[in-house]
Design a binder for these strands. Sequence first.
DNA 1: GACGGGTGTCCGATATATCAGACTGACCCC
DNA 2: GGGGTCAGTCTGATATATCGGACACCCGTC
Lengths: 263, 263
Amino acid sequence: MNEMNATQALVASEVSRERGIDRVLKLFAYLNTRGQPVRVADLPKALGAPRSTIYEIVRVLAESGMLEISSDDNKVYFGRAMYLYGISYFRGNDLIRRGSREVDALSKLTGESSELCMLNRNRQAVVHTHPGTRPMRIVSEAGSQWPLPWTASGRLFLSHMSEIEIRELIQPEDLILPDRRVVDINEFIGECVAARDKSIVITRGLINNFSQCLAVPIFGLDGDVQATICFVLPIDLTDAQRAVVQEELISSGRKLSMQGHDR
Amino acid sequence: MNEMNATQALVASEVSRERGIDRVLKLFAYLNTRGQPVRVADLPKALGAPRSTIYEIVRVLAESGMLEISSDDNKVYFGRAMYLYGISYFRGNDLIRRGSREVDALSKLTGESSELCMLNRNRQAVVHTHPGTRPMRIVSEAGSQWPLPWTASGRLFLSHMSEIEIRELIQPEDLILPDRRVVDINEFIGECVAARDKSIVITRGLINNFSQCLAVPIFGLDGDVQATICFVLPIDLTDAQRAVVQEELISSGRKLSMQGHDR
DNA sequence: GACGGGTGTCCGATATATCAGACTGACCCC
DNA sequence: GGGGTCAGTCTGATATATCGGACACCCGTC
């Protein structure tokens, strides 16, 4: 804005005090990535925050029910209030409600694992899952979040972005797959662009070498990809087997995208 | 601590500045009681907070996904992140998971509306519901919270508290029913104490004059009431009809209370 | 087109929340 | 029992987040 008042600009850069709200948001995000209760004593290191601050914040959040502290080992995790607010969101969100039902129906119909996913900043959030009847373990858990280059849905979410937007969104570490292989960013962008015209995107062996992911877009009223609905399948299905479930999936995607349904 | 430095003691009492975190928690609670998107412009009045503060807080929370702002009319409500964190809690919480399944099963079996409820501070939180097949509208929505004197579950939640604890917890306004009748606090305390030995508590015509509520306790390992599972029934059922579903409900409560199941 | 009510943004002042660090007590290992 | 590591609490100092109020804007109504 102005280059005149550089009086405290130099001094300020060193010492930095962070807002309580920001610490809270980082704390939530951290708990979510961990996916299980975390010792309060570990949080200061993990979040790069002073101990006194963390203890105070945790106390306030636990009092309000946003977090819960297990009395024996002093671990914190999300609390009842978070859940209640979460289902309030769910109630108000038609797409998630309908999509979750559709996921359940798809899994019961086909016996395969399916998921409803949404874009959350630069991550794919798994909003709802239903395990299949196969002995294979389901790949992702509800609430978990994944780098976009790892998933078929990721290509769909980025399909209507420009190359520049995609490059901005994707962090270098997102391109590293679980087995340390690195996704080429240009190839990835190409796949995103290609996804624009497709009714289904399939990726194989990205997250592990024994599964493939089939994802179809769910379009909003203005033609953007609001969510995806996916199958997680063993990689060695025959084409015929895949074709069957694929048709069901595409039809579910169409149904959820259907426009003009009111309320 | 010291009576000497009263220099700013007088001045400070008037003006009071509130923490961001506390404002955030109040904001969440307010949104939850409203149960639907709220105009940002209304929040300062509703929360007794300065406008500049609210706009800033809402901006930060919306950026992080805890809240969502509808672009057209600038209303806020809970966001995706809240939901994701909420289901993370759900995943880690055995009781809610099993209880929700049981509620669904009960409703399908009997055709009646049923709910899973938990105590949240001095409110009864409706954690999960399943509507019945009757034409009657379900009484409460998932995520909503009710004063304890209004409900059968309320009596169970307080059944192991002392009279003094109950008096502290119950606010005067909680005793006013929707139709302006006032619950007598002493009678209420008597009902709470009486609930201690009962396997089921029934209240009739409290929230409205056409329904009754049947609630059974779900006990934790240490014998406290961790949650309740309830039916909401028309008030004019015959005793025989009620006896049938009542047995199912009690059996569900026993099953969920079952101790010694590990993991 | 003047007026009034309401919405959203911006800015400087100051009350205070955050921070660093000291302190206590528990626990373990040698 | 001495020494080291770690968990949790407490306190005073200060960087800054909150606040009040001014401002610009929109949109009705008269």
